[in-house]
Design a protein around this nucleic acid. Structure first.
Lengths: 214, 214
DNA sequence: CAGTGAAGTTGACAGTAACAACATAAGAAA
DNA sequence: TTTCTTATGTTGTTACTGTCAACTTCACTG
């Protein structure tokens, strides 16, 4: 009954909030079956609308997927913000790392979409902005932990490590090495190595030839 | 002239080594236009064969892509092996890291394919085997550097960091933070943090509640 | 109350993966 | 030699996709 079936029964010509409904349906589809399973026609079918209706709101398939990804970035950012309040930067960083991986595990499909090459993040300024805020919040923690290392590079290193773990998990690359389905011990080890590295890393390369080579 | 044009002119019913030719053409297509651009029909067109001929050699599109990916894994493994001969494990590790990123940058499309979710690595034992060899070679270096940390977890951390950097680069996530197109300074910083972390990380979590939480 | 423009619909086209039925050629069996 | 078998390619078809174009509906504005 209720909204959905009424819509089918009444079949009003105008949907009311089709744009929102399309993004919701696509997000659900991404969550259930992965980004590859999303077709505009299937989404339209789910919402109960003609196969071309989505084009009134999204110029292309990629645009719809980008909207779903933007939603994902906001969720991720909100989750990370809540974990940022600890006073100890090392603990705060570790909590962020766990939160990042947890998000990737819980929202597998959307996470894959967010970092998929199907989406050109450059052309979607909303994504850009959210990512930038998250990055800056991370930068402050890193700077506190590791003032001797250039903050941007250290932050990118931390981000890359989290990102790499998430990717390896989602690609099922770890199942043959790690039993724990929550990957707690791996994440904890990675965090320990990371924090120890940030604190103890030298400010500049030991051997400058290493940087210049090639 | 020669082989290719002769084949078009003579148009022999049987290609001779179609399987090989299909993989080569697909690899070229992946390298030039990315994994998404690969369609069986396009590959067949390039090789000069009917749209259904590939199905005699590959049951599905994914199977052809998996063959291309396997080729990529072998290339990557060969490259890493050459960088493994240094005596100093820290330098050897750093060289491996650079080699890994260089491969991803040089063979962008194939690297994306290798770690794409379009391919189920589990169902292709050849991939499995190559990846396993590479992992074990890495493990030996890590164990030398960081005997106090469980080797598998430390190795996974290292791999994840390399993987994460490669992904961020290929997704163009770094362009707004890093100018250097070779990313030498970033990679060097990541390596310094990593080595310092591996050497200085404590053996077990400082606070066991961190591991159990959630 | 006409009429304008946004939102949704129907129809079409080109491209795709995959299946089925058929054609060809190369080698084994007679 | 001649026939049979089988792997390899081909043609044809189905069902699906994204996207364009032209049509319809309807809410709101002057």
């Amino acid at each position: 009954m209720s909204t959905l079936e009424n819509k089918k029964a009444d079949a009003p010509y105008h949907h009311g909030d089709l744009q929102r409904a399309l993004v919701d349906a696509a997000a659900q589809l991404v969550a259930d079956c992965g980004p590859a399973a999303v077709s505009l026609r299937e989404v339209a079918r789910i919402v109960g609308v003609s196969h071309n209706a989505p084009y009134r709101h999204f110029p292309t398939r990629e645009a719809l997927l980008a909207a779903v990804a933007a939603h994902g970035f906001e969720m991720l950012f909100e989750g990370m913000s809540k974990l940022t309040n600890e006073s100890d930067p090392a603990k705060s960083l570790a909590a962020c790392g766990r939160g990042y991986i947890d998000f990737a595990l819980e929202h597998r499909g959307i996470y894959q979409l967010m970092f998929s090459d199907e989406i050109q993040k450059g052309s979607h300024p909303a994504l850009h902005a959210v990512a930038e805020r998250a990055f800056e919040s991370l930068e402050r923690k890193i700077a506190a932990l590791s003032p001797q290392v250039p903050t941007v590079l250290a932050t990118l290193t931390v981000w890359a490590l989290m990102h790499g773990i998430a990717h390896l998990i989602l690609d099922n690359q770890l199942k043959r090495h790690v039993d724990d389905p929550s990957y707690r011990r791996l994440i904890d080890t990675a965090n320990r190595i990371l924090v120890a590295g940030l604190i103890n890393a030298s400010a500049e390369p030991i051997d400058s030839s290493e940087v210049i080579c090639i």
